[in-house]
């Protein structure tokens, strides 16, 4: 019987040696490939990753209110990447009252590394921005809103195109319902108050310049006129 045992152990040993060898070859090939592409984002990979995002953000990245997911198509890559990092590290979304944020949080964790964040951000940024249709039942007064917007323009720019230096995103091309929920979340410190969030607290201060619900609707109405 001992020959059976011997043959068995010998084959197990040689199989494991083969497996280890293959694993080493595969991982060094992988490392080589990774180092070759680290510098730039890979749009093809980004497009593949974007498949998941379409489930909530829509096939063209135009947003889906039922999923609470805003339009993201055409947002600048730096902002998308920064938000993916913020979601994943718990600086955004991880608040008990943030229904939308808690849905986006696990999706940010699904992206495995910085490279994937970069790839998908670059792809989303390359999509043409959409002009979302108005959805709010009660529209604000854009003329009054322009007055309130004077404060905002310091960071979000007079034309709403944002300012990378300030970390302020464009406000054009966003859904009106998302502008509303975002401002409300800042007002209730649901967004911008989490540990580690350095840019968010400033926004909590800024939305305090909008005295009431009407003012919020007015400034949104003005932002909508900026959208081209």
């Amino acid at each position: 019987m001992s020959w059976v045992f011997e043959r068995f152990t010998r084959s197990v040993v040689s199989m494991s040696a083969l497996c280890i060898f293959l694993a080493v070859v595969a991982s060094s090939l992988g490392a080589f490939a990774a180092s070759a592409q680290e510098a730039s984002a890979d749009l093809a990979k980004g497009k593949a990753l974007f498949g998941l995002c379409t489930q909530c953000h829509g096939t063209n990245g135009g947003g889906m209110q039922a999923a609470l997911a805003p339009a993201i198509a055409g947002l600048p890559a730096w902002y998308i990447e920064a938000q993916l990092v913020k979601f994943k590290s718990g600086q955004r979304g991880l608040h008990a009252q943030d229904t939308g944020g808690l849905r986006m949080y696990p999706m940010s964790r699904w992206l495995q590394n910085e490279q994937e964040q970069k790839d998908v951000a670059a792809y989303v940024a390359s999509l043409p921005a959409v002009a979302p249709a108005p959805t709010l039942a009660q529209a604000g007064d854009a003329a009054k809103g322009q007055g309130y917007y004077a404060v905002c323009s310091a960071c979000h720019a007079p034309d709403g195109s944002g300012n990378q230096g300030m970390g302020a995103p464009p406000l054009t091309g966003l859904n009106d319902w998302y502008l509303l929920t975002s401002i409300q979340k800042y007002k209730k410190s649901i967004r911008g108050s989490l540990p580690g969030d350095t840019l968010g607290p400033a926004m909590i201060g800024m939305v305090a310049t909008l005295p009431d619900d009407d003012a919020v609707l007015d400034v949104i109405a003005h932002i909508q006129t900026l959208a081209k």
């Binding site: 008990a96 229904t99 808690l102 849905r103 949080y105 696990p106």
Partner: peptide, 9 residues
Amino acid sequence: VIAQQWAWT
């Protein structure tokens, strides 16, 4: 214990 899409509070 509060469950929601997709987190536990």
